[in-house]
Design a protein around this nucleic acid. Structure first.
Lengths: 223, 223
DNA sequence: ACCTGAACACCGTTCAAGT
DNA sequence: ACCTGAACACCGTTCAAGT
């Protein structure tokens, strides 16, 4: 006969908030930071809170909504540019801060890409970006449409960065794309051949700057 | 006693290719086009091919690799600009074609975002884009880095478009972000207040053009 | 009214054991 | 050598039935 599993007594566990939306999100945040968003599942959350998964739906609507809440939690910690920073540099700093936060959480970035976040800290972030663009003389429409674009690029960049160094065996994995490009025969892909060396050149930091400089230039130049 | 389930005779099924990588991908493509990428699961694929899911791993490495193959299948049908098209317009047409293809398949777009595709049709697409940028006088490094950026934006745009009109009840669903923005109080979010009307203005087509014009301008203006 | 056990309808991937 | 049954270790969401 196998020994009956004795549940760990409540006293042995860390103190736990009563079931509530806030408590739910803070437990989810903890798991995400410690183990990655992949581990933040309804079932895991439920077991962490000593209940069944169905109970969570009293406080949240869906996983997507939970992810939105997690993004807003993270954005609470977004560093803001100092008061006197010039507008263009301020935009860059703000976007870098956002990207840095999501870089650590690529799965969340992937989720956010289809989310249309609406939390207060996200709105604050967008409002600040808009403020700088307008201060820089960017026309209203270009600022409004441009801010969407800048944030989308930042999110996509973090999302793309994703799985590659997240997977445990990423180090030993060959990049099939890089291999295919390096081996692309000149006759078939003449232009890849011409720029081959530059396709994978530069540090992440350099390419990040290039991307946001280019996009910001383009937005500012729109009539 | 429950009646034994008699399997449908093979003659009653559509003719089916022998198990092979090619056959696998073409069945996957069919399911994706008919029912969406969500339905293209290893188990579904296996049952469609009258085998167990384990057998598929003889021909493909993982779901990610399968998605890469599906993208390349779709890109086979990418419309190419006519010979005499001016470089800038050609870039736009090429990117629009790519975006159009992925727009119909937003889940694939989401997957592609973290994929680094390497199929022949994808390489052809990148090679063509590069050719037009170089023909337009864009410096080698800006062309190489820029093409990545343009494709990334196109993919992200298709991915973002995603879930919203894919979900069955999208029509009845309120956009929480739009609601939050429309209700953002001026005192707290003064800049959102200033540009409020423009944040959701424009057709998809107009914003698409704005995005690629801005990015392309910015890339071309880089030294 | 608020909460939840149990079920529904699934997943991707591995590996020992066939043939 | 090639292939696969069965298992491993999970999912999100719903809903009838508690309290």
């Amino acid at each position: 006969m196998s020994p009956r599993r004795v549940p760990v007594s409540r006293r042995d566990r860390p103190a736990k908030a009563a079931l509530s939306r806030k408590g739910l999100i803070s437990v989810a945040l903890q798991i995400m930071v410690d183990e990655g968003l992949e581990r933040v599942t309804m079932r895991r959350l439920a077991s962490e809170l000593d209940t069944g998964p169905a109970s969570l739906y009293v406080y949240i609507q869906s996983t997507a909504e939970l992810h939105g809440a997690l993004l807003d939690e993270l954005l609470f910690g977004l560093e803001l540019p100092r008061e006197e920073t010039a507008w263009r540099e301020a935009v860059m700093e703000l976007l870098s801060g956002y990207t840095r936060i999501l870089h650590r959480q690529p799965s969340l970035a992937r989720s956010v890409l289809t989310l249309r976040p609406s939390g207060p800290n996200y709105l604050r972030f967008v409002d600040l970006l808009l403020g700088y663009l307008l201060a820089g003389g960017v026309p209203v429409r270009s600022a409004a449409w441009g801010v969407d674009l800048l944030v989308q690029l930042a999110t996509a960049t973090a999302a793309e960065h994703g799985t590659r160094d997240e997977s445990p065996d990423a180090a030993g994995e060959v990049d099939l794309q890089e291999m295919a490009v390096r081996e692309a025969i000149p006759a078939e892909y003449p232009n890849i051949d011409r720029v081959r060396d530059e396709l994978f050149s530069g540090t992440g930091e350099e390419r990040h700057r290039f991307a946001f400089d280019a996009l910001l230039d383009g937005i500012a130049a729109r009539p």
